[in-house]
Design a protein around this nucleic acid. Structure first.
Ligand SMILES: [Zn+2]
Ligand SMILES: [Zn+2]
Ligand SMILES: [Zn+2]
Ligand SMILES: [Zn+2]
Lengths: 162, 162
DNA sequence: CAGCACTTGTCATGTTATTTCATTTCTTGT
DNA sequence: ACAAGAAATGAAATAACATGACAAGTGCTG
């Protein structure tokens, strides 16, 4: 259970991309999923961008890469990535981002900078805390959670303080 | 189209509506806000429906009530209600719901039934828990949080179990 | 009543997402 | 190898959600 948030620190981007792609490859092979070219390209683009990408921005890039040009092309690829834990949807932004902890089954939480729009992924513990308590008290069966914090990232805080 | 619970429990709906309206009236008077007819009607409709309402459904009803028929009519009224804590946006549904604890400043958390689409509001504690910890660790300054759980409400769990 | 801030109505447009159907590709059982 | 079924793709159309811009109206305040 690493609770290390990912996203605001510098890192070896090339390595982080190839590692995530390799994880996805392995996971798909193990589960018999079809990691098709358009899906692979979509994940590559998300990893490359290293930020939240709207479906239509994704569509533009997929078209540029020679794939179809209609919205379902992007939505289907993104749905696949989200369904299999390689990416997440940021509801607040109506956008998608590559998972920072692929492979591990987890409940993500996101920190979204309203200045620079960077997004960091951390872990949440929906079952614990006030929400889990409310769910148990009422008999609500939680299947999935959206936890997104909006605010100011460390870099933008520094800029603002100057 | 069931109109059911605040939480998921039964309650005196008439009383809950007039109480919330009175709270809003008082709050606006105290703060010098203009609780205009269209805003009042919008809040009344949210309270009446007692579930999450899309902006365009709101627009339909406002038009039926004699107000304007263009999207900004609904969005402006909803923006006012959200900005002043009388309503919340459910990001997961792109829809709006009357606040269950108006007046009190709070960080809401929602439980959304994926079967019947009912929504219950609870309190969340963003500063505590894994998210707050991650924010402190990275230096992220949280301003606002979205906490939404999707799952099955008590009533639908019962139905499913039969 | 003049000036100002705020609100409303409307038109136009922009953005995000889904439905549908025909076709192709892959997988599986024979 | 082949046929049948499942999964994925391409493309057209449409639905659903949201904002920008501008003119006109409303209610304060000096
Ligand atoms: Zn993740
Ligand atoms: Zn930032
Ligand atoms: Zn509330
Ligand atoms: Zn339900």
């Amino acid at each position: 259970m690493p609770s290390d948030p990912v996203g605001f620190e510098k890192h070896d981007h090339g390595a982080c991309i190839s590692e995530a792609m390799a994880t996805a490859e392995a996971h798909c092979r193990a589960k018999g999923l079809r990691f098709t070219p358009v899906r692979r390209k979509a994940l590559g683009l998300l990893l490359q961008a290293h930020r939240a990408i709207g479906a239509y921005e994704m569509l533009d890039r997929l078209r540029d890469a020679g794939f179809g040009s209609q919205p379902p092309v992007a939505y289907r690829a993104l749905d696949f990535l989200v369904a299999n834990g390689f990416a997440h949807k940021i509801e607040r932004l109506n956008a998608f981002i590559a998972c920072a902890h692929p492979g591990a089954s987890h409940s993500p939480a996101f920190m979204i900078c309203r200045i620079c729009e960077s997004v960091a992924e951390a872990h949440s513990s929906p079952a614990r805390g006030a929400l889990g308590e409310a769910a148990r008290a009422t008999g609500f069966r939680i299947e999935q959670t959206v936890v997104e914090a909006e605010g100011i990232c460390p870099a933008c805080v520094d800029k603002a303080d100057t």
